[in-house]
Amino acid sequence: MSRVDVRKTYKLYIGGEFPRSESGRSYPALDARGRVVARVAQASRKDLRDAVRHARNAQASWAARSGYNRGQILYRVAEMIEDRFETFVSQVQVTDPDRRRARREVTEAIDTIVWYAGWADKFAQIYGNLNPVAGPFFNISAPEPTGVVGIVAPQDSALLGLVSRLSAVLVSGNTAVVIASESRPMPAVTLAEVLATSDVPPGVVNILTGHTDELIPWLADHMDVNAIDAAGATPEQRRRIQEGAVHNVKRVVLDGEFGDRSPYVIAAFTETKTVWHPKGL
């Protein structure tokens, strides 16, 4: 007799914990042929609210860490994904059965995290500078993280798309509330399990699975979200995000502006601070 396997429950990732949705709802994740492979938690507006609260609480101390430290933590995430390589491949294959393509997606995801990890203690050396102002003043500009960033993850590239958007946001010291790919939620949940065991502090990343149409308006209107990466949003959803952003002047980054790996994505989620100081006796 063959052994009965033990199946995983796919939950949300909020504040370092794995709750089900407070709404008690879930929705089916389908494979490429439309069969139900798992039920994943369907987050509510209250789950989103909790996620933002945790992201806010975690932000100052995440930003206060050294770039070196953040870089090492991201690198650790890459190590842990590599360690679960086959799990990720099989989950990508649920919706995209081509094994070679799935393997490429996972290796690219790992290398992309390593690439961003390296930026943690370097991007300020690219965007920061000494400004040669006239007069006896020391004047430097340096980037600082924007704050809490909402990420509407790309819908098709469930792992690579997510990690490349997420890494760019985290590397400078932002914290994130992610709305995972609605149709391909499984790799995002497994990524959450990796994050929870990779020295990423609780609350720095929060991952919600659910219906994007339901969650996006709450994210777009939230007064304590500072920026939104709309990479995975539909044109209508983008419009909704841009309209909601007005309430507290959120920065909105649209998909396709910079590609999967670019220091300019990091820059998009930073604020430049310029400091003047006199030089004299």
Binding site: G71, A117, G118, D121
Partner: peptide
């Protein structure tokens, strides 16, 4: 630190 520069 320098590992991170190799591809940048």
């Amino acid at each position: 630190y320098y590992a991170g520069w190799a591809d940048k």
